[in-house]
Design a protein around this nucleic acid. Structure first.
Lengths: 234, 234
DNA sequence: ACCTGAACACCGTTCAAGT
DNA sequence: ACCTGAACACCGTTCAAGT
């Protein structure tokens, strides 16, 4: 088995299945993260899966931080590439946001890393895409920066929440059961101290995360629409 | 030294300095987190600081997760208590948001834990306070839930960013140097790929995080103002 | 150049043993 | 009831030694 990975010197054949490359490492790391969550990704587990030693991984990837950034960039780039150009800038912003939401929904660990490492290339891609749409919306120059930041921060906030919810082992990953239990515990809170929480507890079961996420985006877009000469489509 | 911590049986004297209590543990943990960051808090370091064994800590605090939740709740509660009631609901929302911003600025690790554990009591406090102001603003009932969620998610997003920035060791914690270096590297990006990033790079040095944070809150409040019968003050 | 895997310096948590 | 601290089962990372 191990001897199969030997290859003649010179330009290495990168298509060879057994060859250890950064790309193969990142792909395996993503599989591990998806299967076992953030705690499932260790250099030992990764080495085992790739039938190699932990030192070999460190030859291609400096440290765990770099590994997580690479996996995150991979997922975000794929999600961004999937977003098509739209005629209405506000629609494209919605698509970008939803694309990220869905990507993070499928890979919750991305949400955690994205909010921990905001200066990575993944963030730049998101920022760029949103910023260009704000330009197209003719948001005033000075406002574009903070408008983009507001949108990105909101997305990151939701991303972190989703990651946390996915990580939460309560009720064995049964989302409906989790929401029902949360709603029940909220309903038992002191009415004096927590009137609002008790009120929204009723809306919690069966509420649509994705729709709620988009409603927040629309709220910010509506606010942005008030800034400039041209309104965000409403 | 050790013998000083002995006390007679029965109701323990909780004012005794040497006595190990959950409160004292949490307080010491906060000091450790503030001084050395998230990686600085270990049960070993904490035990040493309190001149005890790690097992003693686990007697009072189940695990690290609970310890972090307790420290976070401590800081958030203090910040919320500092916010005064305001006549205009939108102003109170701004004060709540700024209070959180400042608390997280002073204790960046709070931002990280808050976005990782959104179902803790700290979050409930924030949610409650913001929700009541939305009621006062006469935001339609059905919209209150997602309006509050949007605000909270935005705050969490910024919180995570701040935690990440504070954690970033680049330029030895010199924020101005960090911003200048980031702006410089952004200016060198491909103009075809990153026109927007290059544009905002100019605005990056010397920009005011707190002001930008508040601008985002105002954007969301403006959007909320369009929802209901009564407008958020603008 | 690339890989191996033992070794190092850590973790959180448990638990028999003490007081 | 509360505390001690060694022991256990892990980590990420390094590095001499191999090919």
């Amino acid at each position: 088995m191990r001897s199969m990975t030997r290859h003649k010197p010179g330009r290495p054949d990168r298509r060879r299945a057994g060859l250890l490359t950064r790309e193969r490492i990142v792909r395996a790391a993503i599989e591990l993260l998806d299967a076992d969550g953030e705690t499932g990704l260790t250099f030992r587990a990764l080495a085992k899966r790739l039938s190699t030693g932990s030192g070999a991984l460190h030859w291609h990837v400096a440290d765990k931080h770099e590994l997580l950034s690479a996996t995150t960039a991979d997922v975000v780039t794929a999600a961004m590439d999937r977003v098509r150009d739209r005629a209405a800038p506000a629609d494209e912003i919605r698509d970008v946001a939803l694309g990220l939401f869905d990507a993070i929904d499928a890979h919750p660990w991305v949400g955690a890393h994205l909010s921990r490492e905001p200066w990575q290339s993944a963030m730049l891609q998101i920022f760029e895409r949103i910023g260009m749409q704000l330009r197209a919306l003719e948001v005033p120059d000075k406002a574009q920066f903070f408008a983009a930041t507001a949108l990105v921060n909101y997305v990151l906030g939701v991303a972190g929440q989703n990651a946390a919810t996915a990580r939460n082992p309560a009720h064995g990953g049964d989302r409906d059961a989790f929401l029902a239990a949360t709603a029940a515990s909220w309903s038992e809170l002191d009415p004096e101290m927590h009137p609002f929480i008790r009120q929204i507890a009723k809306q919690l079961p069966g509420h649509d995360d994705r729709k709620q996420f988009l409603a927040g985006i629309d709220l910010i877009l509506a606010g942005i629409g008030l800034l400039g000469p041209r309104r965000a489509r409403r």
